[in-house]
Amino acid sequence: MTTRTFRVLIACLALAGCGSSPKPRYYTLQMPPASAGQPSDKAQAGVVVGPVNLPEAVDRVQLVLRSGDNTVDISDAHRWAEPLKSQVARVLAANLARELGTPRVSVFGTATGVEGDLRVAVDIVDLQATLGGDAVVEALWTVRGAPDAPPLHGRAGARAKLPGTDYQAVAAAYGDALAQISKEIAATVRRAERR
């Protein structure tokens, strides 16, 4: 190797070391304001939310956005602060507590001491967003109560407009869409309580 080639190689390595990837930004799902969703009648049963399942394509630390009909962008620079599955379960439980007017709602697998008279298993079958567009959430759920009572099932889709054109707006819109889904789940829980 000539001295000139060696110097060029060293210069290239030095330049490569100067460029660094941007520091990742972290996001969480937020609950809607306390004024949203005033309960019409208080639930008496304890409710446990979970397990919650997500599509594998979005069940990752990076935010995943729809970029075309059959394409997505996975961003290493924009990440969830905690596992998305845990956040969705926590947000659904908090929304259900607000909708049902009871603090007796917990997340499956947590040590809250809430006895679960009813169990709500949720399968998020679609969770997608487009920057500058909408967030879409579609969910199936099953509410199980007494062993001799048949379970109740539900399905709903929700769409929320992103309040901006950045990744923070994606997290906010997902929270809004999950609040809409929670209203539908709460209606099923009320039906299960009346049986």
Rank of each mutant, 00 (worst) to 15 (best):
R25T: 09
R25A: 14
Y26C: 06
Y27A: 05
Y27M: 08
Q30S: 14
P32V: 10
P32I: 05
P33R: 14
A34R: 15
A34Y: 04
S35R: 15
S35P: 02
P39Q: 10
S40M: 11
K42Q: 13
K42L: 09
A43V: 03
A43C: 12
A43W: 01
V47N: 02
V47M: 08
V48T: 11
V48M: 11
G50K: 11
P51L: 08
P51E: 05
P51A: 07
V52I: 05
N53Q: 12
L54V: 08
L54W: 01
L54N: 07
L54P: 01
L54M: 12
P55T: 06
P55G: 11
P55F: 10
E56D: 14
E56M: 12
A57R: 14
V58Q: 02
R60H: 03
Q62V: 01
Q62M: 05
R66K: 15
S67F: 07
D69Q: 14
D69I: 11
N70F: 12
N70T: 11
V72I: 14
D73A: 15
S75G: 07
D76Y: 10
D76K: 12
A77V: 06
A77Q: 13
R79F: 02
W80E: 00
A81F: 07
A81E: 08
E82D: 13
P83F: 08
P83G: 08
L84W: 06
L84T: 03
K85L: 09
S86E: 10
S86T: 11
Q87W: 01
Q87S: 11
V88D: 03
A89I: 00
R90D: 05
R90T: 12
R90H: 05
L92N: 00
A93V: 01
A93G: 07
A94Y: 00
N95K: 03
L96V: 04
L96T: 03
A97E: 00
R98Y: 03
R98D: 00
L100V: 04
G101F: 04
G101A: 03
T102L: 09
P103N: 10
R104K: 15
S106E: 05
S106P: 05
A111F: 09
T112K: 13
E115D: 11
E115Q: 15
E115T: 14
D117S: 12
D117W: 04
D117M: 04
L118A: 08
L118K: 06
R119W: 02
R119T: 13
V120K: 00
V120A: 04
A121D: 12
V122G: 02
V122W: 01
I124D: 02
V125Y: 02
D126Q: 15
L127F: 14
L127S: 11
L127A: 13
L127M: 15
Q128D: 07
Q128K: 15
A129F: 07
G132T: 06
G132F: 03
A135N: 05
V137Y: 01
